[in-house]
């Protein structure tokens, strides 16, 4: 998913009208069925018993703990992945070395792997029966079934977003501005802050928005490593599952409505940033 759009194609203007309208109708039907309807359902069920019940569900102690945990995990995973992503993109686009293709594939690995497997990897690594298990137990360090494990699993699953957004962007931009900065006497760090970061700023923000959205909504990987300790290691998605299974449908959807609101907010931000990026690309001095 990238913000880069190709120049407007004029092919569409040559398609027959009926084709254009049918395609539009199909697309709208799809969006309505798979996106709008479920979204409406979420809000419908959430407020079905009135605003008070909704509020009660959301300020419930376990719900608040889940919200706090979700935000904490995102607050750690997203900055980590931002740093990793920028470093990885820099490495891939500014250096040539053997195995670069392999590195790029590895960056995409979390997309290819089922989130449940991702969680399992960490259990196998850090669980009591895992590789590092005995060492961790001896030093009384809790990773799996505790917050660090959730952070790790979430970081893994959301890793590619920033890198994937930056790599094509930085490749397209080329490195001449950075080279200019170097010849003008800038240190590596100075060059990065004054030249590279402003160049990739909007693309970076776009990637961060996506990364954040995924971090907040992650279910599978977190479910495996969480331990499901109520009030402690349940994130919002997990807590919603718990509520639903307890026949507390309204409460479940109430918390889910928060996630849905957040999703809508993400979409709006993404659109704004994407629009900004396209505007900049259009007025950019020709490379």
């Amino acid at each position: 998913m990238s913000a880069h759009l190709p120049r407007k194609s004029s092919v569409a203007l040559r398609d027959p009208r009926w084709l254009r309208w049918s395609l539009l109708a199909i697309a709208l039907a799809f969006v309505a069925l798979f996106l709008v309807l479920p979204l409406l359902a979420v809000f419908g069920y959430a407020f079905e018993k009135g605003l008070d019940v909704w509020r009660a569900a959301v300020v419930d102690e376990e719900a608040r703990a889940a919200i706090r945990l979700t935000l904490l995990v995102a607050a750690i995973a997203v900055p980590l992945n931002t740093v990793f992503g920028v470093a990885a993109a820099w490495l891939v686009t500014r250096y040539s070395f053997r195995g670069k293709g392999l590195l790029v594939s590895l960056i995409d690995l979390p997309f290819a792997v089922s989130p449940v497997i991702a969680g399992l990897i960490y259990v196998l690594l850090f669980g009591k029966q895992g590789w590092l298990g005995p060492w961790l137990a001896d030093h009384d360090v809790k990773i799996i079934f505790a917050v660090p494990g959730i952070v790790l699993a979430t970081t893994f699953v959301t890793f590619p977003f920033v890198a994937r957004e930056l790599i094509p962007l930085m490749q397209a931009q080329g490195g001449d501005e950075e080279r200019a900065a170097i010849t003008l006497g800038a240190s590596g760090w100075s060059m990065f802050w004054r030249v590279t970061l402003p160049k990739i700023g909007w693309g970076l923000l776009y990637g961060v928005i996506l990364c954040n959205a995924r971090a907040i909504g992650e279910f599978g990987a977190v479910s495996v490593v969480s331990g499901h300790i109520r009030g402690l290691t349940n994130t919002m998605p997990l807590h919603i599952e718990v509520l639903y299974n307890e026949y507390q449908r309204t409460a479940a959807f109430a918390v889910a409505s928060l996630l849905a609101l957040f999703a809508l907010l993400t979409l709006v931000l993404k659109q704004i940033v994407g629009w900004r990026m396209r505007r900049i690309a259009a007025t950019e001095p020709d490379a």
Partner: peptide, 20 residues
């Protein structure tokens, strides 16, 4: 007192893997 709930087998597995 903290509670954790899940499928019995899955919970057993988790305790073996280090859920304290």
């Amino acid at each position: 007192i903290n509670q954790s709930h899940g499928g019995s087998g899955k919970q057993s597995r988790s305790v073996i893997d280090g859920l304290e």
